[in-house]
Amino acid sequence: MKKHTSCDMQSCLMCQLALKEWKPAIDAHKKNFKAKKGEQIITEGEPVHGVYFVTSGNVKVHKKWGDKELILRFANQGKIFGHRGLGSKSSVYPISATALEETTICFIDLEFFMATLKVNHDLAFNLMMFYADELQESEKRMRNLALMSVKSRLAVALLNLKAQFGVDVNGSIDVDMSRQDLAAYSGATYETVFRTMNDIMQENLITLNGKRICIVNEEGLTHLTSE
């Protein structure tokens, strides 16, 4: 990991919600660094040592799923990851995290982060609500994996990516993602997602612009999610 000191002390969830008087303590304890594209920041099963916030860039949060990889979510600017390792009974991270592009990250060690939660009640409350939302999404995800076709799951994945990352000047989803990662996010094999992408393109629901995907018929893609 390449050390990097750039941090505006206001972009991430912690800095936005922490008391003004607590920010000097955050500034003293935070450790900023840059992760290269493809660099693994957290490895599933390693001891918990703290939490991370994305200053810029994009991180995939993933875990082993049989002999495959399942991407649970993406963390971009301001988002937290590594928090799934928190808890009185937790001792290891249940997930891995890997930079999808060069990413600037802020690391907060576990002891200081727990002290921060005890002092900053707004942060603790918002983190609790974040956990609740994430649990609902996880339950929905497991249901989709069990009941939805690959085509429907791919449609859900594309709509979620557009909602999180928005679109670029060309109207494409504003994130560069490999087809392998899209397959892992959809809970399917690369080959199946490749074939399904071609089917959706033939139905004029999406187009490709280099590595990026443009949703040209959002209503039609949304309809697939209810099939």
Rank of each mutant, 00 (worst) to 15 (best):
L182G: 05
V48P: 03
K60S: 05
I41A: 03
I173H: 11
L17C: 03
Q40I: 07
T207M: 09
F130Y: 15
G87C: 12
M177V: 11
L221W: 06
K3H: 11
S11Q: 14
T103C: 04
A163T: 11
M129W: 12
A157M: 14
G187R: 10
A97D: 04
A132V: 08
T98P: 12
K63M: 06
L19T: 01
E227H: 12
F107N: 07
D109L: 04
T55F: 04
E39V: 00
T5K: 05
S152R: 03
T192A: 10
S172Y: 09
T207N: 12
E137N: 15
T189P: 10
Q16D: 05
K68Y: 10
A115T: 14
N76D: 13
L13A: 01
I215Y: 07
D174Q: 11
H83S: 09
N144T: 09
D133Y: 13
G220D: 14
S91M: 14
I173A: 03
T43H: 04
M148C: 07
D174A: 14
V51G: 01
L205C: 02
G187N: 09
M148A: 09
N198F: 05
G50Q: 09
Q180W: 11
L117R: 08
A188S: 15
M114K: 14
T103A: 02
M114S: 02
A25K: 14
E203V: 01
G45M: 03
L182N: 07
N204L: 04
L221F: 00
Q164N: 09
E101C: 11
G85L: 06
I105G: 08
I95Y: 12
M114G: 02
Y185V: 00
I215E: 14
V150M: 01
G45D: 01
K89E: 13
E39G: 03
I80T: 14
N217W: 04
K63N: 03
L86T: 10
A183N: 10
V48E: 00
K34N: 06
I95L: 15
L17T: 02
V51S: 03
S226W: 11
E39P: 04
I95P: 09
P47R: 00
D199M: 05
N126Y: 14
G78R: 08
K20F: 04
H121C: 09
I80P: 02
G210W: 07
V59Y: 05
I42G: 01
S91N: 13
T103R: 09
F194G: 06
K30S: 01
V156W: 09
A183H: 11
S90H: 06
I26V: 10
Y131T: 12
K3L: 14
G166Y: 02
K30N: 04
S11C: 07
P24L: 07
K89P: 06
K20W: 01
T116Y: 12
R212Y: 01
T104Q: 08
L161G: 03
A163Y: 10
F194S: 13
F53T: 12
M14A: 05
T43W: 00
W65C: 00
N120G: 08
F194W: 04
S152Y: 02
I108F: 15
P24G: 01
I26N: 10
N170C: 00
K37P: 03
V193C: 06
G220R: 13
K64Y: 10
V61T: 02
L205V: 02
E218T: 11
M201I: 15
